[in-house]
Write a protein that binds this DNA or RNA. Structure first.
Length: 750
RNA sequence: UGGGGCGUGGCCAAGCGGUAAGGCACCAGUUUUUGGUACUGGUAUUCGGGGGUUCGAAUCCCUCCGCCCCAUCCA
């Protein structure tokens, strides 16, 4: 577990601690209508991760309530994905469709309670009756059918006596609810469709809002975690369970922000379009952000798990940089996979002073990877190097082979260029080179300075392989659809040359092709006759990056312009109050404004004013503390009254307590309704003003923090708060902060 | 526009009244037979803006601004 908890784990921990649940039970509830993508991976990690962190369990549940969209191939994909990521659902996959009979019973129960009715409006009428976000809707004329009639109709809907769309079952809630979702939501619709599991048994199917909460309840889920767009649905979730009286140890819904990654699309609809449109080879195309795609590409489960852990869980809509994912796979593979040499774009090099052949023993792993293993590298007169590892007229800072600059052949000798052979068009076709016999890697006595080592393969022994270079599927940072597709997202190199051991040894399925990136033997296309490697990810490349010029527009920050909106003008009465407060009572305009505009606050204030003539002190606490309480409850719900507030303020005014303590006392009053004077007495919160009592504490704090004293003296003024805080802390907040502040400054300056 | 959410560096993200965590990205240096890795250091005088409360505010109050979600018989 990471050092800082996310908000979900905080909730779970509190619920466990308070005894609200004995065990945490979560669920991962996908709809089997598409392949899971990395956004699902996040959800899987959250649900299974929390369950395992707190020793509970997590169910895998297919939310299959819509027979027209779902299919069994997707449930297999979902199971595969969860399993591949390494989670265990206890060999028991749940299906919402298994609960159809129970759900039907719950629905009839609701009808019997008068809480649900069969509506027979058309689809269009239902939409119109629902109203808009600003206008209330109105109930259907079928809303007052008798319970008997509803029961009868609902049963006949189930029996299949009606056509699709003829009737629906709706909850009777509130057609004028501010939350649109609560305007008599649909519970069941008629669908004469074959369900991939339930077959043709049902002609009615429950809606998400009805089925999901009940499925959670049936499975004993404690924390029902979903994404932000379901926030509005939480009210129905609660309504259904509460109305049915399913309140004992019932689940509660919590929402987090779904994952977004730049340069990729993450909606199942858009992904399906790519598959259907043939822009990709299928759900598992290595460019797809599906779990199957990443897997096919060569990503490891560990890297994805790690990614999900790194990005965190919060409620802010966010777009994660794809570089973060790429880091995770590089980071994982760096310590795991063997290094080999592969030349993607070969340039022939003939080493004119080398005759014969030899085999070089070369470690599969670099010095900093603690793994053992090596292979034989054939070396001979004719080799191939990467075309861009030679430049006739190199730019400044180029480390590789040039007519003037020698280079090391990795694991082998240093060579230098003697002659450049070109074709009729002036393209380099071959390099005639010379090697230094005493420069062999591991026993180099040549003392020739080289700037880099490059990969190569021996012409005779090298094997031809197919290499598929994948790049991001979209060229646009926030792609909308096919129009943003990166035309170069796939480059197939048919005849790359690889050292023979990769094919003959088959040490691993993933390799680092040195200086290029990580590659994966394609699990379906790879054969001994035609080996195929997918590029998983490039190595970081600070050379090519350095050469790229960053456009100026990206560098210069455009300052955001803040527009100040218009403030609603005060009513006449409010204005009068405001004038009185600022004039007669000498309140500052901000406080006066807050009070005058809020009827509850101003009347509370006036009431308190009758008790104590301290207009400013009272105003401050009413407009700040009381206002906060009034945000979450009604005036009648307040545990404290104006008189108590006046008593509180009086203690501040006569310096019995500090304003810091006053806030603390207020909080307790708000919670318990106790009398402030009583609180101060029983807790002994009377302010310490006596410097002789404070000074020793200051000395103590200073003695304990010599580093910070030094920093403060060096000019770090922010540390003043630290010292004051420490002193206040040791006095339980009772020391007069103003005096502490003065004394600390005095002490530290001396 | 009603309602529900959310704004902390280029991207994520902790912190919830007392010295602005961490990761990615970026920059510099060290190590290096991968322009990789590893290591070291640098990068927010400030938390969407403005006010207020407080000795002290990213944290509390007021207000304005911006973004997302909701008017599928989808989930």
């Amino acid at each position: 577990m990471r050092e800082s908890k996310d908000f979900l784990r905080t909730i779970v921990e509190e619920d466990l601690k308070s005894g609200k649940y004995r065990e945490v039970i979560t669920r991962f509830p996908p709809e089997p209508n598409g392949f899971p993508h990395i956004g699902h991976a996040k959800s899987i990690c959250i649900n299974f991760g929390i369950a395992s962190d707190y020793h509970g369990h997590c169910n895998l549940r297919m939310d299959d309530t819509n027979p027209t969209k779902e299919d069994t191939q997707y449930v297999e994909a979902l199971k595969d994905a969860v399993e591949w990521l390494g989670f265990d659902w206890g060999n028991n996959v749940f299906f919402t469709s298994d609960y159809f009979p129970k759900l039907y019973d719950y629905a009839t129960q609701l009808i019997k309670m008068g809480k649900a009715y069969v509506d027979s409006l058309t689809e269009e009428e239902i939409r119109q009756y629902r109203g808009t976000v600003t206008q209330a809707g109105k109930r259907s004329k079928y809303g007052d059918r008798s319970i008997e009639e509803n029961l009868d109709l609902f049963e006949r809907m189930k029996k299949g006596e009606f056509k699709d769309g003829e009737h629906v079952l709706r909850a009777r809630i509130d057609m004028s609810a501010a939350n649109m979702k609560m305007r008599d939501p649909l519970l069941y619709r008629i669908r004469h469709a074959h369900h991939f599991r339930a077959g043709d048994e049902w002609s009615i199917y429950p809606m998400y809002d009805f089925a999901h909460c009940l499925a959670d309840y049936i499975e004993g889920i404690s924390h029902s975690i979903c994404t932000l767009e379901f926030e509005n649905n939480r009210d129905i979730y609660d309504w259904v369970l509460d109305t049915l009286g399913l309140t004992m140890s019932r689940p509660y819904q919590y929402e987090f922000a779904r994952l977004g990654i730049n340069y990729t699309v993450m909606s199942k609809r858009k992904l399906l379009e790519l598959v259907k449109g043939g822009q990709v080879s299928g759900w598992d195309d290595p460019r797809m952000p599906t779990i199957a795609g990443y897997r096919r590409r060569g990503y490891t489960a560990e890297s994805i798990l790690n990614f999900c852990d790194q990005i965190g869980i919060a409620k802010a809509n966010s777009m994660v940089d794809v570089a973060q994912l790429e880091f995770c796979i590089r980071d994982d593979l760096n310590t795991k996979v063997p290094r080999v040499m592969c030349v993607l774009d070969p340039l022939k090099v003939t080493i004119e002073n080398y005759n014969g052949s030899e085999e070089i023993d070369a470690s599969y792993y670099p010095h900093d990877v603690p793994k053992e293993g090596s292979r034989k590298l054939p070396f001979s007169r004719e080799i191939y190097i990467e075309r861009d590892d030679f430049i006739e007229n190199p730019p400044k800072g180029y480390f590789r082979l040039t007519p003037k600059q020698p280079v090391r052949l990795r694991h082998a000798y240093i060579i230098s260029c003697k002659e450049i052979i070109k074709d009729a068009n002036g393209n380099v076709t071959e390099i005639k080179a010379e090697y230094y016999p005493e420069s062999k890697s591991g026993s180099d006595t040549s003392s020739i300075k080289i700037k880099s080592a490059i990969q190569w393969v021996s012409a005779k022994e090298a094997k031809a392989v197919e290499v598929r270079l994948y790049d991001r599927l979209f060229a646009n940072e926030a792609p909308e659809g096919v129009e943003d597709i990166n035309p170069d997202s796939l480059k197939v190199i048919k005849n790359a040359l690889i050292e023979p051991a990769v094919i003959t040894d088959r040490l691993d399925e993933r390799f680092q092709f040195e200086r290029q990136g990580y590659f994966y033997a394609d699990p379906t296309l790879y054969t001994d006759e035609n080996p195929v490697f997918n590029k998983i990810v490039s190595l970081k490349d600070s050379w090519s990056k350095k050469r790229k010029v960053i456009p100026e527009v990206l560098i210069s920050k455009i300052p955001k312009v803040q527009i100040d909106g218009e403030v609603v003008p005060m009513s006449e009465a409010e204005q009068a109050l405001f004038d009185k407060y600022t004039g007669e009572l000498k309140l500052n305009s901000e406080i006066a404004n807050t009070l005058a505009r809020d009827k509850n606050l101003s009347s509370f204030y006036e009431e308190a004013l009758k008790q104590l003539d301290s207009p400013v002190g009272l105003a401050n606490i009413v407009s700040n503390e009381v206002a906060r309480e009034l945000k979450v409850r009604e005036v009648s719900q307040l545990k404290f009254n104006a008189k108590q507030i006046s008593e509180l303020v009086k203690m501040v005014d006569d310096e019995t307590i500090s304003s810091k303590i006053a806030k603390q006392v207020f909080e307790q009053m708000a919670k318990s309704g106790e009398n402030p004077i009583q609180i101060v007495e029983t807790k002994g919160l009377i302010q310490i003003n006596d410097p002789s009592k404070i000074l020793p504490i200051i000395d103590e704090v200073i003695a304990k923090n010599p580093d910070n004293v030094a920093k403060f003296k060096a000019g770090n003024g922010k540390l003043l708060g630290f010292f004051v805080g420490q002193v206040l802390k040791t006095t339980g907040g009772k020391a007069n902060p103003k005096i502490v502040n003065e004394l600390v400054v005095e002490k530290l300056k001396s």
